[in-house]
């Protein structure tokens, strides 16, 4: 485990890969069935599949929801990294509880509720993967704004996507400086590996010193430019908000998407009451 962790931080872990996956996830699939949905419809959809499974313990119904969100996730063509993280997340949320319960002498009666819990977690996570990874970030932030989320959040979302490639490149260069100039301890033996891990953690902490200073310079230009571009003016103007949201339009396809989801849920409910 130690070994894996230390290797994943600097060696195998390629910043280019990460950057590419995040961008691909955000913009590379902007023509999928999910990406072109109206964000408001999709957020409502998420509200259902993100909440309802928590309250239901019926296995047939949960399975039905699970299959639906799995299909939508596939339709959204989510990047591999996100799916991997999803799997990791599910395991760390309930998988570990399962092991702990067994250790403390739980039996089958303890396992079943945990399995149901796992199914819930999976369904809810996939629903969020569909909506938040499937939607184009700008559409997402517009949708959130329509529901009254603060302007600053929707600004932060678009800005984050804008900044990420630059920040990563800078971080990569700083880490590279350490790699080229530093002298990591040999890591063949177990104590060596621990020393190597400590060294890497230290490098990462230290690398935030230059990063903070460099990013501070950037932030200043950005905020000055925002002031000139009337960001503050817009944040307090209802008219501007209306203009920003004018691009949102619900099409028949959006309604059909909602209706099909509704039909699916109804069918699973029927099945669960029959079975």
């Amino acid at each position: 485990m130690l070994n894996k962790l230390s290797e994943s931080i600097l060696d195998k872990f390629s910043m280019d890969f990460l950057r590419n996956q995040v961008l691909k996830n955000a913009y590379g699939n902007d023509d999928t069935l999910i990406a072109v949905r109206d964000p408001r419809v999709l957020l409502l959809w998420y509200l259902f599949f993100g909440l309802v499974p928590w309250f239901v313990n019926d296995i047939v119904f949960l399975l039905g929801c699970f299959v639906l969100v799995m299909i939508t996730t596939l339709l959204a063509r989510v990047a591999g990294l996100v799916l991997f993280l999803f799997a990791l997340g599910v395991f760390s949320q309930t998988g570990y509880l399962l092991i702990v319960t067994l250790l403390f002498g739980g039996d089958a009666s303890a396992i079943l509720p945990l399995l149901v819990l796992t199914l819930k977690v999976t369904t809810v996570s996939l629903a969020s993967v569909t909506v938040f990874s499937g939607l184009d970030p700008d559409r997402l932030s517009n949708g959130l704004m329509w529901y009254g989320c603060p302007e600053r959040l929707s600004f932060s979302i678009s800005y984050a996507y804008r900044m990420l490639p630059m920040l990563m490149e800078e971080f990569q260069n700083v880490l590279l400086s350490y790699r080229l100039r530093g002298n990591p301890p040999a890591h063949d033996s177990i104590p060596g590996k621990i020393r190597y891990l400590i060294y890497q953690v230290k490098v990462i902490v230290h690398s935030f010193y230059p990063l903070m200073l460099n990013t501070a310079k950037r932030s200043r230009t950005t905020v000055e430019a925002l002031e000139i571009k009337g960001y503050r003016y817009a944040a307090s103007s209802k008219e501007v908000r209306r203009m920003k949201l004018a691009s949102l339009k619900i099409s028949y396809d959006d309604l059909i998407f909602a209706a099909v989801s509704f039909l699916w849920v109804a069918v699973t409910m029927l099945l669960s009451s029959i079975l």
Binding site: Y27, P137, D138, S158, Y159, Y161, R162, M166, K217, R218, T221, T222, E224, A225, L226, I228, K229
Partner: peptide, 13 residues
């Protein structure tokens, strides 16, 4: 106004 570090001036994707 266009800054010398103009890439930080661009805030939208």
């Amino acid at each position: 106004y266009v800054y010398q570090d103009f890439e930080n001036q661009i805030v939208r994707p």
